[in-house]
Write a protein that binds this DNA or RNA. Sequence first.
RNA 1: GCCGCCGUAGUAUAGCCCGGCCUAGUAUGCGGGCCUGUCGAGCCCGUGACCCGGGUUCAAAUCCCGGCGGCGGCGCCA
Length: 417
Amino acid sequence: MRICGWVIRRKTIGKIVILEISGDTSSKPHVIALKKEREPELFELARDLPVGTALCFEGELAPVQKSRRGVEYIAKEIKIYSRPLEPLPVDTIGKVPALLDTRIRYRYLLLRNPAEKAIFKIRESILRAAREYFIKNGFMEIQTPKIVAAGAEGGATLFPVKYFEYNAYLSQSPQLYKQMLMSSVPRVYEITPYFRAEKFDTPRHLNESWGIDAEIGFIESEEDVMNVLENLIAYIVDYIRKNNVEELEILGVELKPLTVPFKRITFKEAVDILSSEGVEIPEGEDLTEAAEKKLGEIMASKGYDIFFITRFPWEATGFYYMRNEDGTTRKFDLDYKGLELSSGGQREHRYEKLVEALRDKGLNPEGFKFYLEAFKYGMPPHGGFGLGVERLLVKLLGLSNVREAILFVRDRNRLIP
RNA sequence: GCCGCCGUAGUAUAGCCCGGCCUAGUAUGCGGGCCUGUCGAGCCCGUGACCCGGGUUCAAAUCCCGGCGGCGGCGCCA
């Protein structure tokens, strides 16, 4: 058996050298012990292999597993490919902590640390599980353009891009495109980056983040959308519980299964709950970050870690959400432990109503012509959602910053690496 | 954009409030020595740092001003 990786730990105890090689197949390290008496050449070789050395070894599973840290092998041959030119700037076994800033800078190295790698293996599982779920439920995976002419909101901040002689933007949401596709493919999903030019600098925001976006046609109400979303998340959690036992153990995370359906409260009920706790939300305004956190605490104390807030007021939503007669909309948010994980709802699919909505929001229907056109030819009622991958990962693993949940961070002040 | 906290060896920190006892402490890393299985092994020796610029002062890591950078709160925000 040939195993390759990097030395993450070397320990010499008298006439034994113990090497730990960062695992490629498993999250736990591969361990080889070399004894002076048993394999004198390898012992000499291993004795001055610095941490960080890239190597492969030929070996077999050790009959006696003495290491408590990883799987132990008996090495027959070691081939060195590359030695570090200087000592590693960060500790790849996690003995000495690194600040977030340092972790981001040296992420590529820190992934040799099983704990750091475990986060991203679970991130991968989220996407894998999502794909599996969508495939099982008859969704088609799509890709929509990331260079676009208009944003979904009109008001939100977009990154301008020079596109030959045109002004273009980086897409902040596949929203409009997936809706257009509802006129022909009633179940689509996309795993996509979102680009947002807001100058925020918080543990919850990134300027380039990833989302799992879905859109569903022929629905009766937003309830059908919420159904897909809650089942998707429960599926993801199950998948991780099943496939990432080792990673969860390394991270010390106990992930409890989620039961569907999730609790639902209306926006009005949320405002009332908050009001009874002394937090006032002005009429027609969205929940503030602090209010959302507080609501999360209150709901958690009632046994609801995860819950939907439904029927948002029209004033606090995008133009494309379907309006109810009472001034509420069919928009919902999904909150998990005080953080908005996802938002979605039923869209307005009736052409005239949509034009009216654009005007009511002070937007010019001319600018959305390409989008509106799609509503002329038999658009079914539909709805969808966007689910933030980093936020989901943060909440599942109890991380404290979304920057821990993405390999290469793009935030207010980071364009490198 | 506003507010708060912070910036010390490769990494992580102590010292700063109350200037001199700092020739800057500790852990880990790194180099070397001892040790036949460590589990964040242990013991000994060595190595290496006050973000940048200006000011106050006999004296600045410590106080003041400016800059740059980080973290957090708020705002803004699918």
